[in-house]
Amino acid sequence: MPHTQVTEQLKASLQTAYRQAIDADTRLDELKKAGHVKFDTIFTKDEGFTTASNRFQPYVQELAAEMEAMTQNTETMTQALEGYVRKLGLLLQTMQAFKSNAK
């Protein structure tokens, strides 16, 4: 698959992650007000993110910056894709699990 098609699919997934992050962060704010949020970060450093936050949007922003960097240098894109896709999948799965459990 050409890089342009891969890039477009990843951008669409990133947009989905952004919309879900807004909803998830709103729910986290509600839970924090009720005294239920007692964690410092959503992901550990071992999971590949450099961001450390108790909200989802900063992780989406990290992925958006990585996407921008990957599209600027197509020579290293293939190498960067594996880690990027893994982190994006982890983010989307975690938000889905949070949404299911936060009902």
Rank of each mutant, 00 (worst) to 15 (best):
M1T: 11
P2R: 06
P2M: 02
P2Y: 01
H3A: 08
T4G: 00
Q5K: 11
V6C: 04
T7W: 06
T7P: 00
E8A: 14
E8N: 15
Q9R: 14
Q9I: 10
Q9W: 03
K11V: 08
A12H: 07
A12G: 04
S13L: 14
S13N: 13
Q15L: 12
T16H: 08
Y18R: 15
R19M: 06
R19V: 09
R19W: 02
A21M: 05
A24K: 04
L28Y: 04
E30G: 15
E30H: 08
A34V: 03
A34F: 05
A34M: 10
G35T: 05
F39P: 11
F39L: 09
F39H: 10
D40M: 07
T41N: 12
T41E: 12
I42A: 02
T44A: 13
K45D: 11
E47S: 14
E47T: 11
E47D: 08
F49N: 05
T50F: 04
T51I: 04
T51L: 02
A52P: 01
F56R: 09
F56W: 06
P58V: 05
P58Y: 05
Y59S: 08
E62I: 06
E62Y: 00
L63A: 06
A64V: 05
A65E: 14
A65N: 13
E66H: 08
E66M: 13
M67S: 07
M67R: 03
M67Y: 11
A69K: 12
A69V: 08
M70Y: 07
M70L: 12
M70F: 10
T71N: 14
Q72C: 02
N73A: 10
N73G: 02
T74Q: 10
T74F: 04
T74R: 12
E75C: 00
T78G: 10
Q79R: 13
L81V: 02
G83P: 02
V85T: 15
V85A: 12
K87Q: 15
L88E: 04
G89R: 11
L92M: 14
Q93E: 15
T94C: 05
Q96S: 12
A97D: 13
K99C: 00
S100G: 00
S100K: 12
N101M: 09
